[in-house]
């Protein structure tokens, strides 16, 4: 099983790097070519969420990303924000999205979760085992182990 680990300071400019590495490792792991756009978007959304939370809570800790290709391609994105995150967020309907009262941040968060849920068949969002934070775990089928 090959594993690539990446940790980056919580700045928006590094999210693109995480996407590029994530897609390169996915391709190497044998993820189908037509799924790579979705892999790129999902890793970007998970990292964007983590960066936004670290900035919101003033955390300088790095965001941690781990990509592994044992029996499928799995990406874990770990943040250290002191919140209880889950997938309980209901998808926003078109009427709510267009509402004046919905802030851009709230809309972006809702849309980000909709994209994660829509593009990742095997998605888990759960507290980390050690300490404070949340792990977003995403898996895709991969051709070779």
């Amino acid at each position: 099983m090959a594993t690539v680990k990446l940790s980056f300071s919580p700045a928006p400019v590094h999210v693109r790097t995480a996407r590029l590495v994530g897609v390169a490792v996915a391709r190497r792991a044998g993820v189908r070519e037509d799924l790579l756009d979705e892999v790129r978007l999902a890793i970007g959304e998970a990292c964007t969420r983590a960066v936004a939370l670290h900035r919101q809570y003033g955390l300088a800790d790095p965001v941690y990303v781990e990509m592994s290709d044992g029996g499928g391609y799995t990406v874990r994105v770990v943040d250290r924000a002191p919140i209880e995150a889950g997938l309980g967020l209901a998808a926003l309907g078109p009427d709510e999205l267009a509402k004046e009262s919905l802030s851009e941040d709230a809309l972006t968060t809702g849309v980000g979760f909709a994209l994660l849920a829509g593009f990742v068949e095997d998605l888990q969002v759960r507290p980390v085992d050690d300490g404070v934070g949340t792990e977003v775990r995403m898996s895709w089928p991969a051709g070779r182990a």
Partner: peptide, 20 residues
């Protein structure tokens, strides 16, 4: 060639601003 939730948020913001 790439658009994420942040970009979508900006576009919705512009839509609302112009509508109002």
């Amino acid at each position: 060639d790439f658009l994420d939730s942040t970009g979508l948020g900006v576009l919705v913001g512009a839509l609302k601003r112009l509508r109002s």
